[in-house]
Simulated assay, not measured.
Amino acid sequence: MRIAVIGGGIGGLCLAHGLRKAGVDVAVYERELSRTDRLQGYRVHINPDGAAALRECLPAAGWERFERSAGSGGNGFGFLDQRLRPLLVLDPEEEKHYSASRITLRQVLLEGLDVQFGRRFERYEPGDDIKLHFEDGGVESCDLLVGADGIRSRVRQQYLPHAGTEKIGVTAIAGKLFLDDHDWVPRHLVDRAHTVVPTTRAGMFLAAHDGLGVTDETDLLFDNVRPYLMWAYAAADLTVHDGQGLKAEVLRRITKWSPDLRRIVEASPDETISEWKLRSSKPIGRWQPTNVTVLGDAIHAMTPMRGIGANIALKDARLLARCIAEGGDAIARYEKEMHDYGFAAVRDSLQAARRFADGGPVARTIFKTVLRAAQAVPPLKRAMF
């Protein structure tokens, strides 16, 4: 079987490794011109599901390199009010979590794969022998086509034209503060990730990422070896106009919050601050399986509020590689399971985003009361979380 994967992101590359392990002929087509073109500065949280997928699909040397380059990413979780007073603290899980540089993770995943760069996919001709058309005029063929080409997937647009994403009415502004330059940051904000629950219709997320091992020159170029505190402020009524400073807007909105939170935002370098207009995949029913399929953001893009998008894409990759290796009605089995857990994750992430960035004072007061009650009664906390 000849399999073509459109897109050289985390999910597509993990799938290619899994297929190679199973002895399957796989080709990866990536629109970027080289292996260092897609350089993103924020790190990604790899949970136990994502780590299990990487461990299963990567060759042993690739998994070892990933573990060597990744920092720790699972030290528990906490809820705070806007004055940084604790509402609820959750203990770390027993299973290991990782904090991975997106840049380094991509280099790990590219190792050993013959990816065709500079191949911008245009469309396909369906059939037993699928014809792939690229913007450079080239034509390739395959028996099975996998769209792993992200939130604006051209494969999905042709295969499932009724699917896609939509704005959810929530905007976030995010930045990062390098911790090796600022030792005044409160220790508890570095020890675990936190969600700040204010009385206003907004929220803030904070997560520290420790220093990573140097694995290539891009790590040094993009500060991937420095520990930092990532923060994100989100609100349903947040509208940033052209020319308006992102940092100034956040500072204006958190004037009455903790002085430490204001100082964190104020001291964050301007070049690290960006705006995100959050989108989420439209819910769709199951479709009839063919010899075309999709994975990751190409089918179930979700908000970043639960930090699981990359991990669900890795889960897709492991499941699809397994199904293909087992043979039979592989795509039907894959799509049935992927549809269920993928769109469940989309719903959970969307609900979390709306709770995080919206909700009136009464709802927020009730939520805080529930969190404090759970903290005071350990059996209740275990049952809830």
Rank of each mutant, 00 (worst) to 15 (best):
N75D: 10
I331Y: 07
E93Y: 07
T218G: 01
D210A: 14
G243T: 05
A235W: 06
R382A: 12
S349K: 04
Q375K: 06
I103F: 05
D37Y: 06
L278H: 10
L314S: 05
R364N: 01
E64K: 12
M230L: 15
A235Y: 07
L110K: 01
L251T: 13
I264L: 11
F117T: 03
G360M: 11
Q107N: 09
C142V: 13
L220Q: 09
I6S: 04
R333V: 08
A325N: 09
A357G: 04
R55G: 01
S274G: 12
V370H: 03
Y29L: 00
L109I: 02
Q158I: 07
P361S: 12
Q244I: 06
V5M: 00
M338Y: 03
S349D: 02
E95A: 15
S141I: 08
I168N: 07
A60E: 14
T199Y: 09
C323H: 13
V294N: 07
V139G: 04
M302S: 08
L33N: 12
V294T: 10
A148H: 03
L319C: 14
T303P: 00
E249C: 10
E111V: 01
R226A: 06
I308W: 09
Q157N: 05
V362E: 05
A321F: 07
Y228H: 15
S99M: 11
D316T: 02
D181F: 10
D181R: 15
P126S: 01
R306K: 14
V26A: 03
R322M: 11
R156G: 09
D191F: 04
G211P: 15
Q351A: 15
S34M: 03
G50S: 07
K282E: 06
T36D: 06
A352Y: 03
D329W: 03
T200A: 09
P304V: 11
V346T: 03
A148L: 01
